[in-house]
Simulated scan of single mutants.
Amino acid sequence: MPNWTAYSQNNCIFLALLLLGFLSCGGNGDAPEAPAVDEATRSSIEARLIPELSPAEDRAGRQRNAIINRAIDQAYDIQPAPEGYFYEILSPGAYNPLAEGDIVTAHYRGQFLDGTVFDDSRPRGEPLRFTVGELIPAWNLALQRVQPGGAIRILTPSALAYGAGGLVGPRGDTLVPAHTVLEFIIEDINIHEE
């Protein structure tokens, strides 16, 4: 008669290893992600962010709370900015921080708080070229916290992103609905002389 207990244990071990293999292969490998955190770090992030939750029931308060809850769920070590967005320096870069008027190229990924990506420069194979100060407010402000070569995560309420108008693509399709909270990772930042 077969030993079903041993068979079941071996299957459980095999399935657990298979699941770990699938999970470790996730992601696109292109954008820097926050490193895995231990339980003590996760608890520290949660303890620091919970007091940041807003008691307000207006749109701004709900969006702030959604950002904080996303950060707690994902263990993002974000910091609040006085202007209302949150950021995490993933890699500081070198030299002087970016300033308004700098001409920059960078790769980026924009996503909703559920993780759905709405725009990503990597598949296009070309970084975005822009001038700091001519983008959405959250980018204009947060990019001045990082240096060339660095990477930053930005979580922004809609008021500092695309607001009531949302973002409409060139063919008239809605890329970002009105009043949507967004998350961006901006990396491979380079300043260009003109």
Rank of each mutant, 00 (worst) to 15 (best):
P2V: 11
P2W: 13
W4H: 14
S8K: 12
I13Y: 10
L19D: 07
L19M: 11
G21D: 08
G21W: 00
C25N: 14
C25G: 15
G26H: 08
G29W: 00
D30C: 13
E33D: 10
P35C: 06
V37N: 11
E39G: 11
E39A: 15
S43M: 14
S44W: 12
S44C: 09
E46D: 15
A47R: 15
R48P: 08
P51Y: 14
P51E: 08
S54L: 10
E57W: 11
G61P: 04
R62T: 00
Q63D: 03
R64L: 04
A66D: 01
N69W: 14
R70G: 07
A75K: 04
Y76R: 05
P80I: 08
P82C: 07
Y85A: 03
F86E: 00
Y87C: 02
E88I: 01
N96S: 14
A99I: 06
D102G: 08
V104S: 02
T105Q: 09
H107L: 05
R109P: 02
R109C: 01
G110S: 10
F112V: 03
L113W: 01
D114E: 08
T116A: 15
F118P: 00
R124I: 04
G125W: 02
P127V: 04
F130M: 10
T131D: 07
G133F: 04
G133S: 10
E134N: 13
E134A: 14
I136W: 02
P137C: 07
W139Q: 07
L141I: 11
A142M: 05
A142I: 03
Q144S: 02
R145Y: 13
P148F: 03
G149V: 03
G150V: 03
G150Q: 06
L155V: 05
T156F: 11
S158I: 00
L160I: 01
G163P: 00
A164V: 12
G169V: 05
P170V: 05
P170H: 10
R171N: 09
D173K: 14
T174K: 15
P177D: 03
H179N: 15
T180N: 01
V181W: 01
F184V: 01
I185N: 10
I185Q: 04
I189Q: 03
N190W: 13
I191K: 15
E194K: 15
